[in-house]
Amino acid sequence: MPLSAFSTIALTNVSQTFSHHNHQVQLFHQLSLCIEQGHSYAITGPSGSGKSSLLMLMAGLEQPTTGQVAYLQHGRSMPLAQLRQDIGFVFQQFHLLPELTALHNVALPLKLRGEKNAEATAREWLEKVGLGHRLNHKPQQLSGGEQQRVAIARALVFQPKFIFADEPTGNLDSKSAADVAELLFACCQQNGAALVMVTHSPQLAARAQQVFAFNNGNCALLENAPLEVQSAC
């Protein structure tokens, strides 16, 4: 795929500050980075260091105090509203709708977009994440790992170009965490989507191609050697 075919989120000299009890707290300063479709990224650092804020900026859901966030498609600048349609989220708490079955939770984004074969596509995705036998189960009938698999399927079912994951394994035991991580990376890779994760887990961060590490108000970029991702998705 030529470089111009990829979608990119570019942050240029962004700073983020907020006011707390009349004190200005700076999360990060003059940060410039690029998120490219098809790559994986991890954001690490202690609690309150600004990881989630950076994720929100990247997703175009918040405005930086200073600096610019741009969305480029084939090298051309696109409005940020367009970016919002090309992203999916995976949360630590899964956030599945309790009233809906696994199938309906996954079909939800497609149905809202008016797609005709929503349920058939959702079924395919659930089979991909290994839950073909749990289609009609409601979230409370599923384990944490299974719920996160449903959430991953839901995030990817509408073919977003970027997946933002906030502590995707934070609520899971080590075995489930490893399985979910494997699945997440595999699905994103297979789908050609960028994966941006906020995580406290060094093991999970180590799987990303690039790591943005927050430390004492600074954000450093660490390159990881690309790991081989098993084809679980």
Partner: peptide, 13 residues
């Protein structure tokens, strides 16, 4: 509120 937040997370407005 949660339902609406989830809908927003699908990239819908």
């Amino acid at each position: 509120q949660k339902k609406n937040s989830i809908i927003l997370s699908f990239g819908l407005s």
